[in-house]
Nucleic acid binder design. Structure first.
Length: 594
RNA sequence: GGUUCAGUAGCUCAGCUGGAUAGAGCAACGGCCUUCUAAGCCGUAGGUCGCAGGUUCGAAUCCUGCCUGAAUCACCA
């Protein structure tokens, strides 16, 4: 419709003022709600063609195009804005178009299919997942679905930081204090079990350091002299040397952690196509650094460490290999990137990683480019902001974290309490209720996190943040269940939806809803282009809100006019599908009733 | 200090590539359940869009400077 009007306006300018309008100058937009009309032509850019006042120009163009476009019922001019009202037939044609598209919502995409990797989650194996990981997982998962909706062939990947001093700390503490206990014998979730020993290590170690500083050592000396620390380092050396006992312990404890993670991922509803392990990729990274060294891209210092000089790109020098030849973070990421390219030949790869690592990914991309990998241009850092608590930053070392499993369980519990208090679902079977509460609780959590712009830091107050009223997941779910309820009853009453609406007159609310429904594809495409799931969340809230008001103001099944009733049922059906689809893109499941 | 990002109602957040009178929710106050789900709907109150300039028909949005906050500038991952 906009395109046709664009042509109409271009035509009007040519006929009235004798000028050709280049595309891009014309601005057609949805009319603001408080004004009469559906579409608005902004005439300010056209004044240089007409040489007349905004009002006069708008009036002339308005008169011209209502004459040639029968879809336009009337027009009005407010200041420099030409507001056009579409006739019923034009609206119904739009509706028909939407209905015929309803089963192929996957049309937001364009162009040839690209292979796109999304890396997210990236946990360490020494402690359980926390709120920061939740934001990461939800963003990564949603981004994957959005890109796939837009035609990308998406592979979800995860890189597990399974090696390094941190896991050795847990291993050592378990050896010292564990008494051979396991998650099975204690009934603890594996990741929490291992995390407990990480904390025990930190406690024992800081106690030791405190004793040393009490005896007059400086903090630096104390840290160096700590037996716990040096034993952990020794363990890392043995691990790197492939000592069977150490590697066996490492494997066992990691397997506990993976079981725990798997459970959390399942509860969150996220998954991966392929999991990479740092312990597998860091060696490849080392080879890459060595070939770069041979090609003269990198430089070895006197002590034997390898560096890349990025000062010409306005960055610093960056370490790639330690003097003893062991790998650092960057080494391993180079290896992972190359391995992934060999595995997938991707066009794009998105790293979902917090903004604290902006610098790291800037450097990673630059180094890959210097090494001559052409695909390096296709890697992007999807950088998101931190989640802060009312007390400030989350600090895992100080125990100032919100644990992922706790949070998920609390959400589901709250959903249950809320529902029971409101007296919903009284006579439902328990198992079915559990599924619904879990969808509502998780819906609240996911929506709360995804509705905010990923780039921004966000505040999370465990007591107040998560709401079930207002701009929330449960509100959208509630709207959806109302729609489903109406459709179920329509079926029982054998009232059919109808597509023959020629005789009906749309009201303002119905037009508002159609206007919003028309926006769906554009919103999804923008979300994909800007890598921003929050566009979808905020859109779907607006749609749900309109629809709730619509159900409040108008009756559906009780409507006497058969074709109007049929239309409203069809509109409900379509809206329900769009809401469900959009929420699916956010990774939020919908209950059929609540 | 360098770099990057952010600053919108008491609080949490929207505001699309510059467009009309800056929007929701929470919190506060007042209405609405005999009618398809009240996790809802309606109303009241709440704003110098960090500050100052600039660009133009028009700026929360773009440019410059300043103020404030965050992240980063590691032989941690």
């Amino acid at each position: 419709m906009e395109k046709i009007i664009e042509q109409n306006v271009a035509c009007a300018v040519k006929d009235l003022y004798g000028s050709d309008v280049e595309t891009g100058v014309l601005q057609i937009q949805e009319t603001r709600k408080d004004f009469e009309g559906d579409l608005t032509v902004v005439v300010f850019p056209l004044l240089r063609f007409s040489g007349k006042s905004p009002e006069q120009t708008a009036a002339e163009i308005g008169e011209y195009i209502t004459g040639i476009n029968p879809g336009i019922e009337s027009c009005s001019v407010v200041k420099g804005f030409l507001n056009l009202s579409l006739g019923n037939s034009a609206w119904l044609a739009e509706f028909d178009k939407l209905v015929s598209e309803k089963d192929s919502l996957r049309q937001a995409g364009r162009g040839e299919q690209q292979v796109t990797l999304v890396e997210y989650s990236s946990p360490n194996t020494n402690k359980p997942l926390h709120l920061g990981h939740i934001r990461n997982n939800l963003l990564g998962f949603s981004l994957s679905r959005i890109l796939s909706e837009c035609g990308h062939k998406v592979f979800k990947t995860n890189i597990v930081n399974d090696r390094g001093i941190h896991i050795c700390k847990s291993m050592l503490a378990w050896k010292l204090f564990g008494d051979g206990k396991t998650p099975e014998t204690t009934g603890m979730k594996g990741d929490h079990f291992v995390g407990k020993y990480y904390v025990e290590f930190e406690n024992a170690c800081s106690k030791e350091i405190r004793e040393l500083t009490d005896r007059g050592m400086t903090p630096g000396e104390a840290a160096a002299g700590s037996k716990m620390m040096s034993e952990a380092r020794e363990m890392l050396r043995r691990w790197e040397a492939g000592d069977p006992e150490t590697v066996g312990l490492w494997k066992m404890m990691n397997s506990w952690v993976y079981e725990g993670f798997e459970e959390t991922y399942r509860a969150l509803g996220v998954d991966f196509d392929r999991i990479y392990y740092e312990s597998d990729t860091y060696k490849l990274g080392r080879d890459i650094v060595n070939t770069g060294l041979e090609k003269g891209i990198f430089r070895r210092k006197e002590d034997g460490s390898v560096w890349v000089d990025l000062t010409s790109d306005n960055l610093d020098e960056k370490l790639l290999l330690r003097a003893d030849g062991t790998a650092v973070y960057m080494t391993q990421d180079l290896g992972t990137a190359v391995e992934r390219y060999n595995d997938y030949r991707f066009d794009n790869q998105y790293y979902v990683v917090g903004n604290e690592q902006n610098y790291h990914f800037q450097v990673l991309k630059l180094i890959l480019e210097k090494l001559g990998y052409e695909w390096a241009g296709g890697i992007y850092h999807f950088s998101y902001g931190m989640v802060n608590l009312p007390e400030g930053k989350m600090k895992s070392r100080e125990g100032k974290v919100v644990d992922a499993d706790d949070l998920i369980n609390t959400m589901i519990k709250t959903a249950r309490e809320m529902s029971e208090e409101l007296g919903k679902l009284g006579d439902y079977p328990e198992e079915e209720k559990d599924g619904i509460y879990s969808r509502i609780g998780l819906g609240a959590l996911k929506y709360f996190i995804l509705k905010v712009d990923p780039r921004k830091n966000m505040l999370f107050d465990p007591r107040e943040s998560i709401d079930f009223n207002g701009n929330t997941g449960p509100f959208v779910q509630y709207t959806y269940t109302r729609i489903r309820s109406v459709l179920r009853k329509a079926e029982e009453m054998e009232v059919k939806s109808s597509h023959d609406f020629r005789s009906i007159k749309l009201n303002g609310k119905e037009k508002d809803i159609l206007r919003l429904l028309r926006r769906y594809h554009r919103v999804v495409r923008e979300a994909a282009d800007e890598l921003n799931p929050s566009y979808i969340a905020n859109y779907i809230y607006e749609l749900s809100r309109e629809f709730n008001q619509f159900y409040h103001d108008y009756t559906i099944l009780g409507e006497k006019d058969e074709s109007l009733r049929g239309f409203r049922i069809a509109l409900s059906d379509l809206t329900g599908r769009v809401i469900k689809r959009a929420m699916w893109l956010l990774g939020i499941e919908m209950p059929e009733r609540m």
